[in-house]
């Protein structure tokens, strides 16, 4: 079973990212679970969302305590919030940041595998909105090969077209692909 923790701020779409990841994995025939950490939901407040992906039925409903993968959607968390808590020694951390992986390692003290991608920059240039959550999944797919990039594209088109229109949806899909290519 793979356990993923996503750090974001309320309104940044960490929960949506966790759900998309789960749904895309399900399309691949996996057993899935995704849920946010249910605190008081306030826009801008730091929050966490989780995804579990497994070949077997997922029985536990306990919180994720030692994630295999950590996604950090908000770059300001690095050095301020303990995003590495409980992460497995051989775990992977992917951070929305313009900095290098080495710099993030230095700031977080995490010695495992670290990748960075300027997901905010990519999102803003593609859609004009600072919505780095979905592009972050492009980076995750490149690093981990958990799910095919097409399944995320399909989900984005299905869920976003009605909400934000075809043009912005297409731009979001392009942002996913850019993050896939540009992740360090």
């Amino acid at each position: 079973m793979i356990e993923i923790r996503i750090h974001g701020r309320g309104g940044q779409g960490a929960k949506t990212a966790a759900n998309f990841l789960a749904m895309a994995a399900m399309e691949k025939g996996k057993q899935i679970q995704s849920f946010p950490e249910y605190g008081p939901e306030r826009a801008g407040a730091p929050m966490k969302a989780y995804t579990r992906i497994s070949d077997k039925k997922i029985k536990t409903y306990a919180p994720v305590v030692s994630p295999d993968i950590v996604l950090v959607i908000d770059p300001t968390f690095i050095g301020n919030i303990n995003v590495t808590e409980g992460i497995k020694q051989d775990g992977i951390m992917i951070v929305n940041s313009r900095e290098t992986p080495d710099k993030v390692k230095e700031k977080t003290g995490f010695s495992g595998e670290v990748h960075t991608v300027d997901a905010s920059g990519i999102a803003i240039s593609a859609t004009g909105l600072n919505k780095p959550n979905v592009p972050m999944l492009g980076a995750l797919i490149k690093i981990t090969d958990l799910i095919p990039v097409e399944s995320i594209e399909k989900l984005v088109r299905k869920k976003f077209t009605e909400k934000i229109g075809e043009e912005k949806t297409q731009a979001t899909v392009e942002a996913i692909n850019r993050a896939y290519k540009e992740v360090n």
Binding site: A18, N19, A22, Q31, I32, S34, F35, P36, I58, Y61
Partner: peptide
């Protein structure tokens, strides 16, 4: 069903 844990968690 359990509030949030089941009601708001995505599952198969």
């Amino acid at each position: 069903q359990d509030g949030f844990i089941t009601s708001h968690g995505v599952q198969n």
